[in-house]
Design a protein around this nucleic acid. Structure first.
Lengths: 122, 122
DNA sequence: CTGAATCCAGTACGATACTG
DNA sequence: CAGTATCGTACTGGATTCAG
């Protein structure tokens, strides 16, 4: 009922394409996967998502907040503490995105074999 | 049974991270979504995935082929005809990736509202 | 600790021209 | 038609520094 067939991610100018661009992204995927475990502070996200820089983490979280997928909770403390959490909308995205992460982990052996086959062959 | 908990996309050096990087990508998502409908020639992919350049389409298809997700079928004709198709492995990825595409289409209204709220508020 | 602001290298991507 | 090659540009993303 809420599905609107007018939206089509394959159409260059469709707004849903901009949304796809944001969520079909490795950083978004990993952040949402971590946030799926519960409310998390900035620092812990930084260490959980290995290799992400502070800049990219901040920017990605801002974008996710703007799109209504993540909520930001600031505590008036010293040192400051900021926690991030999936919104209801964000939670609906958690399942599909963690499916992607699990696919990567479950099928990496086959992918590595395929790469070796491809690379040798030339 | 086939799930290997040693693999973890959150670990920077884990091979599964490289696989995630490839598949958690807008072009990959759209190409796999189109290929899910069946074997497709290069030109038709080019027009189905609106806005993709020939260069990026070629490069992405090569990478997908290398990872064993897509197979390439060349016909010795003039003018040349090349068709692409999901492999068995690629087909296992089609469901999660089209779920992402459908999420983008199904929830774009909420996302747009959230953006408006966020942007006005500052 | 959070995260804004700079600076800069590397990459992604598009446009164009050209080949078989 | 299906590429390849080249080029220029815009964006991604890391490192560093600084402020609250």
């Amino acid at each position: 009922m809420s599905y609107e067939p007018d939206w089509n991610v394959l159409t260059a100018t469709c707004p849903s394409r901009t949304s796809l661009t944001r969520i079909a992204n490795k950083w978004t995927a990993m952040i949402v996967i971590v946030l799926g475990k519960g409310r998390t502070r900035f620092r812990d996200l930084r260490t959980s998502v290995e290799g992400i820089s502070g800049k990219v983490l901040t920017e990605t979280l801002r974008d996710l907040e703007r799109d209504g997928l993540v909520s930001r909770h600031v505590f008036a403390e010293v040192p400051p503490r900021v926690e991030y959490e999936l919104t209801d909308l964000g939670r609906t995205l958690h399942t599909p995105l963690s499916a992607i992460g699990q696919w990567a982990e479950a099928h990496i052996a086959e992918v590595l074999e395929a790469r070796e086959r491809y690379d040798c062959q030339r």
